[in-house]
Simulated assay, not measured.
Amino acid sequence: MNEAANSNNQAQSFDMRKDDAGWTVYDIATYEPARVNGVPQTGLSIEVADDLVDLLNTLAREKNESTGH
């Protein structure tokens, strides 16, 4: 299996859900909104939320790989 297929099969750390003001990016382990520089990521456009989920999952995956988990 190639590396791209492997990365798609890895568990996600973040996902998005609809909220009253748009979309919330949240930590799937705690169901709490993700925070960037202390700011909860709520009320986002769908495009921004989708991009942020991808970015945060990539960063989490890289962190796990660098720590050997």
Rank of each mutant, 00 (worst) to 15 (best):
T24F: 03
N9L: 05
T24I: 04
G43V: 02
Y31T: 11
D19W: 09
A4K: 05
G68N: 08
G43Q: 00
Q10R: 10
H69D: 06
A34S: 13
A60G: 13
M1R: 01
E3S: 07
N2D: 14
W23C: 09
L56I: 14
M1G: 05
A49D: 12
Q10D: 00
D51E: 14
T24A: 01
L52P: 13
Q10E: 09
S7H: 03
K63H: 13
W23M: 12
V48C: 04
E62L: 15
A34K: 04
A11M: 00
E47C: 03
W23T: 05
G68R: 06
A29P: 02
A5L: 11
N9C: 01
N9I: 00
V48S: 13
E3G: 00
K63D: 11
Y26I: 08
G43H: 01
G68F: 09
A60F: 12
A60P: 14
F14D: 13
I46C: 05
G43C: 03
D15H: 09
F14W: 09
E65R: 11
V36S: 15
A5W: 06
Q41R: 09
N8F: 04
A4E: 06
I28R: 12
L44E: 03
T24D: 02
F14G: 14
A29S: 15
D15Q: 10
N37Q: 10
E3I: 08
D15E: 13
D19P: 01
D15T: 14
A34R: 05
D19A: 12
R35N: 10
N2L: 04
E47D: 11
V39D: 06
N64R: 15
E3L: 10
R17P: 06
E32Q: 09
P40Y: 02
P33A: 02
S7V: 09
A49P: 15
Q12S: 06
E3D: 07
N37K: 12
R17D: 10
A4S: 07
E65K: 12
D20A: 15
A5S: 10
Q10V: 11
T30Y: 04
P40H: 05
N57G: 10
A21M: 00
V53D: 07
T42M: 08
M16A: 13
L56D: 09
E32K: 07
N57V: 04
A21L: 02
I28K: 13
L52Q: 13
L55M: 12
V48R: 08
T24H: 02
W23K: 03
D54Q: 15
N2Q: 02
D15G: 08
P40W: 04
N9M: 05
I46M: 12
D19C: 06
L55W: 07
S66W: 02
N9V: 01
D19R: 03
Y31E: 09
G43W: 01
P40V: 08
